[in-house]
């Protein structure tokens, strides 16, 4: 149930947006829980975007992993 899939917002129409999940899969997603812009990446669960994915912080996470491995 906690399965949620990342996708990229490609169109916005009020609370409803179109999200591209890759491999040609595009679905309507409810955005009522978030403030988003076209081009944002979001995590989608059961038709609702529950949170944004911060691309910068995704890269930051990997950098942090690298640092942790060096440090310990």
């Amino acid at each position: 149930m906690c399965l949620a899939v990342p996708g990229k917002v490609i169109a916005l129409d009020g609370a409803i947006s179109k999200v591209d999940f890759g491999s040609g899969v595009i679905r309507e997603v409810n955005m009522s829980m978030l403030e988003i812009e076209i081009g944002d990446y979001v995590i989608v669960h059961a038709g609702f975007a529950i949170q944004k994915v911060d691309e910068k912080e995704a890269k930051e996470t990997l950098k942090l992993f690298e640092e942790l491995m060096e440090k310990t």
Partner: peptide
């Protein structure tokens, strides 16, 4: 919080309010 690219300390305020 290892998943900070998605999880914010305060969570999702709009969802919590709903």
């Amino acid at each position: 919080n290892e998943y900070f690219r998605v999880v914010k300390p305060e969570g999702n305020p709009k969802a919590i309010e709903a």
